[in-house]
């Protein structure tokens, strides 16, 4: 029970992923929303690396590496969009960006 196994790591990744999902659903501040997405990406990375060690195979590390690169690109573009949103609406509340809402 005390020693971490594969299941411990997977459950930890699931918990942090769920906290991220919860944040995306509950928060309305676009910047915090983005941070919750980063949280989810990180917990997925943890799963990859856990399985990588379990399988004694380094492919999971490579995938995590690419996830980090994509997260960097996503953060750059996303924050530019938030900046633009703020200029238009004078707010980063995602509920105010409702031009496409029915």
């Amino acid at each position: 029970m005390f020693e971490p196994t594969l299941t411990h790591y997977l459950i930890l990744a699931a918990i942090t992923f769920c906290i991220g999902v919860f944040g995306v659903m509950v928060r309305r501040n676009a910047i915090t929303l983005f941070m919750c997405v980063e949280l989810m990406l990180n917990s997925v990375n943890l799963t990859f690396i856990t399985f990588s060690k379990y399988r004694v195979d380094m492919d999971g590390h490579i995938f995590g590496f690419f996830v980090m690169a994509v997260a960097a690109a996503e953060a750059a573009v996303g924050l530019a969009i938030i900046l633009h949103l703020f200029r238009h609406k004078r707010s980063v509340d995602v509920e105010r960006a409702d031009a496409l809402q029915l």
Binding site: L12, I15, T16, I19, G20, F22, G23, T32
Partner: peptide, 11 residues
């Protein structure tokens, strides 16, 4: 990790 994740959402 869990506590600081909660802090990210709750702050």
């Amino acid at each position: 990790a869990v506590l600081s994740s909660v802090a990210v959402v709750a702050m």
